[in-house]
Design a protein around this nucleic acid. Sequence first.
DNA 1: TAGATTGTTAATCGATTAACAATC
DNA 2: TAGATTGTTAATCGATTAACAATC
Lengths: 205, 205
Amino acid sequence: MTKKKIPDIIIGRLPLYLRALERMATEDTIVTSSKELGEWVGISAAQIRKDISQFGEFGKQGTGYNIEFLSKKLREIMNIDRVWDVAIIGAGDIGKGLARYQGFLDRGFRVRLAFDNSPDKIGTKIGDVVVEDIANMVKSINEAKVKVAIIAVPAENAQSVADELAKTGVKAILNYATICIGVPEGVKVQYIDPATHLQWMTYYL
Amino acid sequence: MTKKKIPDIIIGRLPLYLRALERMATEDTIVTSSKELGEWVGISAAQIRKDISQFGEFGKQGTGYNIEFLSKKLREIMNIDRVWDVAIIGAGDIGKGLARYQGFLDRGFRVRLAFDNSPDKIGTKIGDVVVEDIANMVKSINEAKVKVAIIAVPAENAQSVADELAKTGVKAILNYATICIGVPEGVKVQYIDPATHLQWMTYYL
DNA sequence: TAGATTGTTAATCGATTAACAATC
DNA sequence: TAGATTGTTAATCGATTAACAATC
């Protein structure tokens, strides 16, 4: 009864499919095909069919995929048919920007907690949350049962924050610090670093 | 005399290697090995040696890699042994945050231009630049010979901004809009979307 | 029915790993 | 010299593509 292990690389493409489908839905389109979806996300039709078919038979021969139905299925698969509370660690420019970011709400995430170590910031309000002392982080995160965290502290402090997070129920970390962090088995980490992304492209200039 | 075609996936790892090396350098380390570097970035030693050897023989058997020397070579390979001017399109929360971001300066990038279509924002100063009317974008970018742009406008407007950028010398675009954009052959695009990154992980929760 | 498009298989392609001679 | 680590080759592994029967 164990779920077949799906490659990470496929999981990583599902959010792109969903994002495109949600956009299609705003344009009064009812069905789409692997070909059309492929053009939207820049991936071959064959690969899209193969990816989707890992999880079930969600299409109809001759017709394609019902956008509403496939979106629903993808949300279920990705566990975003609910809202996840998020904790943001670090209330500098990046942390503040994320706390106010409007793009989370309708994509399954809500910023619930924010922490910083600076007395200047503790107690201030950013977005809908009040910045707490980072000394309370483990306690607050555990109480709120938060499972998703965003690290937005300087690189020097990222590993120690990650170590603290390991004492909580956080199992998914989005890391904006420009350093690779070590986490316990079973905790997922994703990295965002604009300078790294830019450097990836300057090679071709 | 044509440069051997290096796979994209290898190019994408070079910035990570450089980032780790720069951090090692701050710790008074002189040399490192593929094994140690691999532990820093979470990649196997064999792969690191293979990646680096695509570009030359930068290590010494029995000793490893000189950190200063390898960093210099990587910067040359990635074309960041100089500073690239960057234009930011969209001066909302994300654009503003990026314009003020301190992490670009010492990694090869400087924000030189910013644009928005809102009269409220045009003329205001963010970071070191004054926000210009987006109507002047093509002209200003061409005059400043900027080759790198960051799109930070709503998804609805991202494609039209990309189309305008196609009329300039911009060849590298970092896209924060939550939509896949079409660009002419020869233009590179990278995507950053925090919600997509988070969704990638909730599958495993 | 005729046309279209899925789900799936087999073939291809590319990336990673393991192993080791070369050599510092 | 003995120990260590590179650069590289061959073997393995995994991902993508092409093709097509099934079927709406």
